[in-house]
Design a protein around this nucleic acid. Sequence first.
DNA 1: GTGCGCCTTCGAGTGCACTCGAAGTCAAGC
DNA 2: GCTTGACTTCGAGTGCACTCGAAGGCGCAC
Lengths: 135, 135
Amino acid sequence: MSVAEVVAGPVVTSLSIAEAAEATGLTTHTLRYYERDGLLLDAVDRASSGHRRYSQDDVGWIRMVTRLRSTGMPIREVRQYAELVRAGDGNEAERLQLLVAHRDRVRQQLAEVATHLEAIEYKIGLYERSTCTLT
Amino acid sequence: MSVAEVVAGPVVTSLSIAEAAEATGLTTHTLRYYERDGLLLDAVDRASSGHRRYSQDDVGWIRMVTRLRSTGMPIREVRQYAELVRAGDGNEAERLQLLVAHRDRVRQQLAEVATHLEAIEYKIGLYERSTCTLT
DNA sequence: GTGCGCCTTCGAGTGCACTCGAAGTCAAGC
DNA sequence: GCTTGACTTCGAGTGCACTCGAAGGCGCAC
């Protein structure tokens, strides 16, 4: 933070890589990795020192990326989506298509996991009963 | 299948590795890999030719393994569980503990994915509305 | 008896997503 | 002026779970 920021508060809140990591739950290593792999919308701004400064928009986008990632979207596909957004207006239908396809996959996978979970819970039920009768 | 099996039907239904793969949805490569990695309860029986013959119990266990795997249990932990079952009676409490821990992880992860999915669906809603107004 | 196809073992290769280490730079505090 | 610590780049390493390929064996159909 600059002296001006300390005195008057930040004009626009921007974050160091460590703060961005804190804010997004990623590591600094992963943040740099995402950037060089083209998952972010633009190269992150730099301070005069060359250090990255993450804007609120950057953080918002990274949160979207983590949502896509933690629902199982491959890096490659997140990059495609980022490329569409980067290309600007006019490809909303494509973006929509990509997200809808992902949504459908996630829903299906969620249902499958739920089914498997039920079977596991049934098994747990068996063990609980047998453990009861044993003790 | 032997001549006797063709004539009189199989005495005990046992499957070749290809049939077991078909029955479990795994590849023959993966079935061998699971066996050498200690995920199965015992070494699978062999025909006189040396070919593997999977019993119904084998297939049942492999189905359990795939349930655990596809809910995200690491190979290492499936192996631990298999070791407990292999050790025989007396460790049911441990098995139960392992399954319950897994169940809780799965439940939590399911809830997280559901939350992320909602956020993605919200985003889809935005795109759908903007695409409507555009066309 | 010969070709076919399925089986065997072994070890190496692949793809994904990080994850880490080394070597160097820069601003601030003592 | 010197240390400290957070940052930089680059490339290599890791862990996981398969996945594949090569080389060879067995038994059945023709």
